[in-house]
Design a protein around this nucleic acid. Structure first.
Lengths: 181, 181
DNA sequence: CTCTGACATTCCTATAGTGACATGTCGAAG
DNA sequence: CTTCGACATGTCACTATAGGAATGTCAGAG
């Protein structure tokens, strides 16, 4: 239920409407916790029911501006400090690796190269994001930068691992793809 | 729907019952794609309905031994080579980082240290797994080792990033936790 | 004044995953 | 011969997420 706390976190920086939150989400948190509009509005309703946020005012076009309550702030704090993060468990890219025995070493190597390139592309995207957020100095960007750095490092890891794995596959089947030697 | 293909992959190495597969799963694939027994049996039924696997024999205690069909093998191959892996998007550990502004720098640093320790513990667990699989030489272990290496590297990344992030938080708020200097 | 695009919310269906529960068989130890 | 643990399959209720459809309001451009 991290969406709940993501919303509490966003609202902790100041009141906003569902629409505002959706944009904030896409601009900042989407890289670590994407959410759709339907999820977001649903969760806002539930948060309001639970008393963790309140409708502080209703504006034009049915706009409801939500603000976090003291209970909400406490809940956010509790989640931040006392709820252990859920580890990442599923990664179907690695699942595929287990079944390399079902394809030829050449195909396996091609797969790994693709992964490497995909990681490189993603790395560039993240570097762009880094440039975009450069000027701002609010809390989100200061700490968001930590998350961004994780992404960049994770990306390099991906590329280096693929490189290494290609070597391993070749070592295991020396006939495969001797490359342009 | 990776579970589907995980099962096809396992069955490609040889026929097995749901019970067998459950154990295989926990011993090899659980680290990259965990599944519960209820999911597994449900998926086996659906795979059989779709003609991707067949019940090759029924044994004692209602045991059904499944084997992959040609269609199943083709589907596995297609998934391996032509379906782009789904990127990892959600990581609530990083989501929390965005909200560090809501807690004190000291608390943030304590959080990061915990993450570092958790990663270290997980790293040791993976190293154990590595020792356990050492002797075998079947396809799964040969290629599973590639996945294991990813885990080990990912783990080191986690620790190093946490180290770095602690430094960043200190730099951003020099008053916090000057440490035993 | 009318149209368009941004603003704003709500509802719907489908799929995946979790965890507990229900049901039963068989072999071996006592 | 009984009971216990491993073997074995299945169902159920619940939650999370995805993704899209339906509905409507308001401000500003022309």
């Amino acid at each position: 239920m991290s969406l709940r706390h993501a919303l509490l976190g966003l609202l902790s920086e100041g009141p906003a409407s569902g629409y505002d939150l959706l944009k904030l989400f896409d601009n900042s948190l989407a890289n670590v916790w994407p959410a759709t509009q339907s999820q977001l509005y649903g969760e806002l309703g539930r948060l309001a029911d639970a008393g963790l946020i309140t409708v502080r005012s209703e504006g034009a076009r049915g706009r409801k501006e939500y603000a976090v309550t003291d209970d909400g702030r406490a809940e956010l704090r509790h989640w931040l400090l006392n709820v252990p993060p859920t580890p990442i468990r599923r990664y179907d890219m690695l699942l595929r690796v287990f079944f390399f025995g079902q394809i030829s070493p050449d195909d396996a190597i091609a797969y790994l190269r693709e992964q490497q390139q995909a990681a490189a592309a993603e790395g560039e995207r993240l570097a762009e994001v880094g440039k975009m957020i450069e000027p701002h100095q609010d809390n989100f960007t200061v700490y968001g930068r930590l998350a961004l750095e994780w992404g960049l490092r994770s990306n390099r890891l991906h590329q280096e691992w693929a490189e290494w794995a290609i070597g391993e596959v070749k070592a295991h089947d020396p006939a495969a793809d001797p490359g342009p030697c």
